[in-house]
Design a protein around this nucleic acid. Structure first.
Ligand code: MN
Ligand code: MN
Ligand code: MN
Ligand code: MN
Lengths: 218, 218
DNA sequence: ACCTATTTTTAGACTTATCTAAATTTATTT
DNA sequence: AAATAAATTTAGATAAGTCTAAAAATAGGT
């Protein structure tokens, strides 16, 4: 089917399309893939020949229907494996991403379906991201960033924007995890920091933190 | 660490060493890997530079201690994943090999250990082959081929030599599976076929079959 | 010991995915 | 509108893993 590299590019384009609906630029892709712009151009040409992306020179890329479908299947596998690692193999949520980066490329439709069934058809991965079903459908939750909340408002923690080990371990250390309620007690206009209430604890967090925590308001 | 291709070569050399203790020939490896002898020579040189094999031109290869250890770890992962697929994801024993060929290359020590623990530290894979433990130790069962049994002798089916889908499905169709007792009722000298008794059923099997079924005598 | 067949290695080429450096196109500023 | 800056593509190179065809080494048979 497709190579690891091709699948990784499709996934990257998929994610970047949310931010750049008009088309994903070569440089944006290069940064996301941690590679050089010239390498991106080469790969885009190949993806274009395989009809996975729509590409016109100097105009950026978009996923074709096939590219979109393929990207979603890779993301489905990535998130199912992350769920498996956390729920069945006792991994912490900060340890699973790199292993899922490998597992997402295993080619077997049946494996994916059986894994999904074995896990009980989970709807969200350990970081709160939706897991597409076999048909590629997934619900986009109406979440917002904690930083968007005003004083005295509250919400339930439902996901992370930054899912780096560093950030996740910071959250662990401060006992912040998905499902918990957070109330904004104070908001400092000067630096954007806020004082929050979580499980009867008061905690001061910087804007960098509140900018990377998704919450849902009731 | 090592590439998929390097790991596959190490595994192939490991298996062939059981048959050719004096050293594995280039041609034997080429056949096992379904590739050309010239490609094998190229790869052997690379493995030799990485000190994974002992190689002298025209003399065949042997695994070094490091190569042996590495091969066993790949085999450990292969067999653990096969066990997982059969025991947890409802795969049949004839469907797991190709997927395990992919999964065996996933790099994560912790994943392997946790998977092993999750599965309850199984000792044998679905085809009766031993699963090496974390240190690379595994027990070589004192099994023999069914074809070596004489008339009126019996044994318990403990493994398959040929683990192709075709053979395994043949066994399924005839209700032959690991753990069952087989007694030789008759042995035909002319073509090596035998009449066996398995679960009160009488069955005539060709020598090709009895040559690929391992049994253990009590 | 020599000739021949077989095995193994070497030489040179190809593909995939990447890179650097240079050329080209597009965007921005004066 | 021209000049400059930034983004993008092209040209040419490299490494991994494979191939075909040719050369070299080994093994067998007389
Ligand atoms: Mn992830
Ligand atoms: Mn990946
Ligand atoms: Mn197998
Ligand atoms: Mn393999």
């Amino acid at each position: 089917m497709f190579s690891f590299s091709e699948e990784n590019y499709l996934k990257a384009i998929f994610h970047l399309e949310r931010k750049y609906q008009a088309g994903v630029s070569t440089n944006a892709l290069a940064e996301e893939m941690e590679t050089k712009a010239s390498s991106v151009t080469d790969m885009i040409k190949k993806l274009s020949e395989k009809e996975l992306v729509i590409y016109k020179k100097y105009q950026g890329v978009k996923l074709s229907e096939l590219g979109d479908k393929t990207a979603i299947q890779v993301i489905r596998k990535h998130r199912l494996w992350e769920y498996f690692l956390v729920e069945k193999l006792n991994f912490n949520w900060d340890e699973v991403h790199d292993i899922a980066e490998q597992l997402e490329h295993i080619k077997s439709e049946k494996l994916t379906q059986e894994l999904d069934k074995f896990l009980g058809f989970p709807k969200r991965d350990p970081h709160g991201d939706p897991i597409p079903d076999a048909e590629g459908n997934f619900s986009v939750a109406n979440k917002m960033l904690l930083s968007e909340l005003g004083k005295a408002e509250k919400g339930i923690c439902v996901g992370v924007k930054d899912s780096s080990s560093e950030f996740l371990r910071f959250l662990d250390k401060n006992n912040i995890s998905l499902g918990k309620e957070i109330k904004v007690l104070e908001k400092e206009a000067f630096d954007g920091s806020m004082l929050i209430l979580i499980e009867e604890r008061e905690l001061r967090i910087s804007q960098l933190i509140s900018n990377n925590l998704y919450i849902k308001i009731q």
